[in-house]
């Protein structure tokens, strides 16, 4: 890695001659082809979410009353739904909800879970016991039922869905960080930091945190897939996001009733989009774990 030292001396480097992005990408694709596939899918959906306004041929929520439940055609690639809205445009717009819920929910889960795991793992004892039992308690309930109950009770808004998902998923990050910290807290470099005179907060956040979060970071994509799936499920059950908002779960719910009458396209296309994004995120997450865990990498 060529770098210039602040005092201006150019550093002679021994590291990788001829680094190129192309070779790095080929290298990653070779170590983890599934990850490459996952990245492609996720990037494609991300592109859809960011540039939905330019990609949608129609307004996703304007109803063409004369074109209700039309099958796929040149004008409406994925057909129209019961309100006469363009399904193709709605599927594209739905990507915004997928990412818009998953990213803040995962960030919230990290913000809650990582410090809790850090402190519980380092302090141990009673505090650890209380925090972890509480989190165990959270995980005993099927998350979908808990999410349903909480969202239904706190009010039907997008923000509430994000908050509930983030909170419900925080134990995953807390557990991962805690187990890393448990292994690291008796390691020599932590003892060496203590011997040098580091106060506890520095040991936690300067010494332990950067070494303990790698496993948790590798989980983010998989947890994002979970958040996408659960938020769609909530919408499908009619909690949180309501039709005619172009959210995939809500669209599938709306389309489900037309399945029996033969208008399959209303539910099928948002369903495929949902499956693809969840699949892509999972592949990506799996690859991240392959790359960050040397044991898994060696087995490949």
């Amino acid at each position: 890695m060529a770098e210039t030292v602040s005092n201006g001396i150019e550093q002679s480097t021994t590291a990788e001659p001829g680094f190129s992005l192309k070779n790095r990408l080929i290298g990653i694709a070779r170590v983890s082809p599934t990850m490459a596939a996952g990245v492609l899918i996720v990037v494609a959906f991300g592109f859809m979410a960011l540039f939905a306004e330019f990609l949608m041929p129609h307004d996703p929520v304007s109803a063409y009353h004369d074109r209700v439940l039309q099958p796929p055609s040149a004008e409406h690639w994925f057909g129209t739904d019961g309100n006469g809205m363009d399904v193709f445009s709605r599927v594209i717009y739905g990507a915004k909800f997928g990412f818009g819920i998953a990213i803040p929910a995962v960030l919230l889960a990290i913000v809650i879970g990582v410090p809790v795991g850090l402190i519980a793992g380092y302090r141990g004892g009673f505090l650890d016991e209380v925090l972890m039992r509480f989190f165990d308690g959270l995980r005993v309930f099927p998350s979908i039922i808990l999410a349903l109950a909480v969202v239904a009770a706190t009010g039907q808004s997008l923000l509430n869905v994000v908050l509930v998902l983030g909170f419900l998923d925080s134990p995953v990050f807390a557990r991962l960080v805690r187990s890393e910290v448990l292994a690291l807290r008796s390691s020599v470099f932590v003892e060496s930091a203590k011997a040098a005179g580091n106060p506890t907060w520095r040991i936690l956040f300067i010494h332990l945190l950067p070494n303990a979060v790698q496993g948790a970071m590798a989980q983010t994509a998989v947890r994002a897939a979970w958040a996408v799936r659960i938020s769609a499920t909530l919408a499908f059950l009619g909690v949180g996001i309501q039709a005619p908002t172009p959210e995939w779960g809500a669209m599938i719910r709306q389309g489900a009733e037309f399945m029996v009458t033969g208008q399959w396209w209303v539910a099928l296309f948002p369903g495929i989009a949902l499956i693809l994004l969840v699949f892509g995120l999972n592949l990506f997450g799996d690859g991240l774990q392959d790359l960050t865990d040397p044991r898994r990498r060696a087995a490949k």
Binding site: E16, G18, F19, S20, N23, R24, I26, G27, I28, R30, V31
Partner: peptide, 8 residues
């Protein structure tokens, strides 16, 4: 003999 992450 191995290939590194940059496919070299």
């Amino acid at each position: 003999i191995s290939r590194d992450i940059d496919n070299q």
